[in-house]
Design a protein around this nucleic acid. Structure first.
Lengths: 211, 211
DNA sequence: TCACTTTTCGAACCGTCGTTCGAAACGCGC
DNA sequence: GCGCGTTTCGAACGACGGTTCGAAAAGTGA
């Protein structure tokens, strides 16, 4: 499972091959199937385990009595560490498309439970004026995005350790929710004309509303 | 290309099939190859175009004279709109693995140019004390993560429009750079014992520092 | 040593996917 | 209608990936 998580994180789920996973685990491809029913199950276990750990962190954040920003910061740092450092951690919980009819539902349910839990914390913080967010749902997802994206760029052989990255990213993510925004011009006076349509010369414009 | 971008965003690059793209574009699979050399080129065009638009937004942010947070906010909102709203936009620029030997270099170079440009803005803001970030590189990537992640959860038929989401996410992302951490216990007094090593019985420890 | 279970693996099956080929259908100027 | 370039597509090829099969090797307890 550790090998699978590694390969999933490095190549992405769809691009990861069972033969590659097997070789990373020092097994023959066929032998993998005596431990796992198939690729989907492997993916499911990785995701399920990561989510379980994150839900534990969420429960801890709920029960602590420290100020909300501090609790969220710990939650965020643990979240990032789950993706990066912990050997068995996997960023696979981000790709839910794919295939599994039954398994997918279980993962999505768990993931939603996690997200809803965080959103409840955020919304509560906003109500108590300890946090600031225009929309708790969007803010929560942006918050999670800053955390999840680390799986895309972190390199274990890089300059900073997983712990350092987790701390820095967690600080950033929580700062986005903290109040006392420093008088940013709320809507920006800049012209803002998207330079849209971009004059594409293009071959021709077939298929305009066919079907 | 619009159809390809759609399928790429929905299924991911590796999981997207040429047959599916073709059918989404009302073409036969074979016919696709009279307009594009192959899947890689299709991917390249999508990524290149998105990046081009983002680089334009970056150039605008560089030349404006508004306060830095406001400029970053506009840049962020445009970035999100590139991923979400603009029909031809594509979130494909996030998957650079895959295959292309020559094309890959060009995309990565362009992406790095974009990231470096933003990082320069951030670092400059930190120097002028208009922004706050412990590490400009990590902060920039967390910033971009909050933006990029929208491609994973945004649904066009959802409650809020792409513009609303872009605004809210951009506000959050910039707040993470402009908010002084409000005396969050810097290292959090919470116990924090990662429940690490998790007692894995493990088979054996081959390949420790192999390479 | 002997059954019996567990683990391992080489080889192959089968589907899918990216891609190509050859030719039919179309558009258009003459 | 006739040529000619463009567009379209059905069918198939080759490769790769997930998976299965059957049996050999390794472990286990008496």
């Amino acid at each position: 499972m550790r090998a699978a998580a590694q390969v999933f994180r490095a190549r992405g789920f769809a691009a990861a091959g069972m033969r590659e996973i097997a070789s990373a685990a020092d097994l023959s491809p066929a032998n993998l199937y005596h431990y796992f029913r198939g690729k989907d199950e492997l993916r499911f276990f990785c995701q399920d385990q990561s989510l379980e750990r994150m839900l534990n962190a969420l429960a801890r954040a709920r029960r602590e009595r420290a100020p909300l920003p501090a609790r969220l910061r710990d939650l965020a740092a643990t979240h990032v560490l789950c993706l990066l450092d912990e050997v068995e951690g996997s960023a696979a919980h981000l790709e839910v498309y794919g295939l599994p009819p039954r398994l997918r539902a279980r993962i999505v349910a768990k993931r939603d439970r996690y997200e809803r839990g965080i959103r409840a914390l955020v919304a509560d913080g906003v109500r108590r004026r300890q946090l600031h967010a225009a929309d708790a749902t969007i803010a929560t997802r942006a918050f999670l995005g800053a955390l999840n994206w680390t799986a895309h760029w972190f390199r274990p052989d890089g300059a900073q350790s997983a712990q350092q990255v987790a701390d820095a990213v967690a600080d950033y993510a929580v700062a986005g929710l903290s109040n006392r925004q420093s008088t940013i011009s709320q809507r920006s006076a800049i012209s803002h004309q998207p330079s849209h349509d971009h004059h594409r010369p293009d071959r021709q414009r077939r298929n305009n509303r066919g079907r």
